[in-house]
Design a protein around this nucleic acid. Sequence first.
DNA 1: TGGCTATTTGGTTATACTGCCAACCAGCCA
DNA 2: TGGCTGGTTGGCAGTATAACCAAATAGCCA
Lengths: 107, 107
Amino acid sequence: MDPQRRQALTARAGILKAMAHPTRLHILEELAQGERCVCELHADTGADISTVSKHLSVLKNAGIVEDEKRGLQVFYRLRCPCILSFLGCVENVIQQNVDRQLAALGR
Amino acid sequence: MDPQRRQALTARAGILKAMAHPTRLHILEELAQGERCVCELHADTGADISTVSKHLSVLKNAGIVEDEKRGLQVFYRLRCPCILSFLGCVENVIQQNVDRQLAALGR
DNA sequence: TGGCTATTTGGTTATACTGCCAACCAGCCA
DNA sequence: TGGCTGGTTGGCAGTATAACCAAATAGCCA
């Protein structure tokens, strides 16, 4: 595989990896509805605030979200709202998995 | 967060996690063009064949691909071809990251 | 059956990710 | 200035991933 292709694949994988965590997906879905401060995300994920902060920095390093400090609070928002658009297909896969498991049970 | 939502998020994250590796993305892109046997994927990823086999089992466990043995060979194919449809947005994010880095340099 | 090819599995080592705690920093206000 | 609130950072322990090698398995054919 040539280095350029390798690099392109690594970049894409990096974005996916940043998204591939339940708490981070939850955060992204919240942000899809509008910007949120860290304390709000802390409240509705239930995770320790330092954990939330680290998740946010993962998302920020990946370039998926951006932040803005206003007074004491830091607000985060999606940089590309389209980022969640593929979840429809992910749901298809999951539904198929469920169907398959049911079929296996009934077998 | 209620357990059901937590579970849904974990399932989604699982799919993303399975995709979040350069070699596995490469494999998925190959499969998007049609089924391939392990040896073909081995040839064009350049990875050790046992490594390719393990990557394929990750994808299979996630329900993203399915396999079929025909003679000595095992062929893999995408279960949901739409799975790569979101890469367009991932590319947007990457392009923005590049732009941002360039801007930072020029600053 | 014996040997060959294609693939999977087990074991090992190195590396990376998570979550939690404690300490620290920044901005506001009395 | 001192103290408070909101967030970030560093460090640690536990867990999970990745790649490689060696060994095992499955199907074909002589």
